[in-house]
């Protein structure tokens, strides 16, 4: 048997690597997009299966250690966060199950934001894998405390099956993040367009802003803008990058 499990290695110092993917706000036609914020992403050690985020987080969920690993991801992401413009948002991914089960998570987050001198109004808590756990007392209490703290809430994976309409009613998120599975290819697929259009209309009625993930080609970007989405993220615009790379990227993007 191996002396250390993969989980031991992931939770050891340096086991989780933070990456930052820019999110952009589309402006007036012919104007370049402006930086809206960064989504903080996490990867396991290079050269392992956990370098791929879906494998990393499926493994962590199967081990039922998402609360512990979410804390580590938040701490490492904030620890290596580059200096940003004071209005730039910071999007942190947290499992619904971690919010539901880890009753100290919001206090932990509050201290972590203090330590990073990050004003909570700039922070978006992106609730991932919300399907099973959003409908419980622990989750509801955590959402109430997040609102008291002053952070905004996004629901991830809208359209993927992991997020449902009742949850949108119960959580009333400030942001709805459309899953790349419905965004990618919308320029050539009328069914995807219909879905995006309907979700944009729904978000407007629920007072949520829409963030489209998975923008990977110019045609999708153009179509998503025509469909009324003005906050976008994807490899076409910028790939996830390390903390050291972000300031240069930010500078070059606003100099276009």
């Amino acid at each position: 048997m191996r002396e250390h499990s993969a989980l031991d290695r992931l939770v050891a110092p340096g086991g989780i690597r933070p990456l930052y993917q820019p999110i952009y706000m589309l402006g007036e036609p012919a104007m370049p997009p402006v930086l809206f914020g960064f989504e903080c992403l996490s990867r396991g050690p290079a050269g392992t299966n956990f370098e791929k985020a879906p494998v990393l987080f499926d493994y962590v969920r199967l081990k039922r250690q998402e609360a512990l690993v979410d804390r580590i991801c938040v701490a490492t992401a904030l620890g290596e966060l580059p200096l940003l413009d004071p209005v730039t948002r910071v999007c942190l991914n947290v499992h619904a199950s971690a919010l539901a089960r880890d009753h100290g998570f919001v206090d932990f987050l509050s201290h972590a934001l203090d330590d990073s001198r990050l004003y909570p109004g700039r922070v978006i808590i992106d609730v991932v894998h919300p399907d099973a756990m959003y409908d419980g007392d622990g989750f509801r209490a955590a959402v109430a405390r997040l609102r008291d703290l002053g952070v905004a809430i996004a629901i991830d994976d809208i359209g993927s099956g992991a997020a449902n309409f009742k949850m949108l009613l119960d959580v009333a998120p400030e942001y709805m993040k459309l899953d790349r599975g419905i965004v990618s290819g919308c320029h050539s697929d009328p069914r995807r367009r219909a879905m995006v259009e309907s979700l944009v209309a729904l978000a407007a009625k629920l007072d949520s802003a829409v963030i489209a993930e998975g923008i990977e080609c110019d045609d999708d970007l153009m179509m998503i803008e025509l469909l009324g989405v003005d906050i976008v993220q994807g490899f076409l615009l910028a790939e996830p990058m390390s903390g050291r790379e972000t300031p240069q990227h930010f500078i070059s993007s606003i100099a276009v």
């Binding site: 499990s5 993969a6 299966n49 879906p54 494998v55 990393l56 493994y59 199967l62 081990k63």
Partner: peptide
Amino acid sequence: VDTAFELEEAQALLAN
């Protein structure tokens, strides 16, 4: 060839 050392690691790979 992919490899895994634990049940949950194998399950995460099978899922993806």
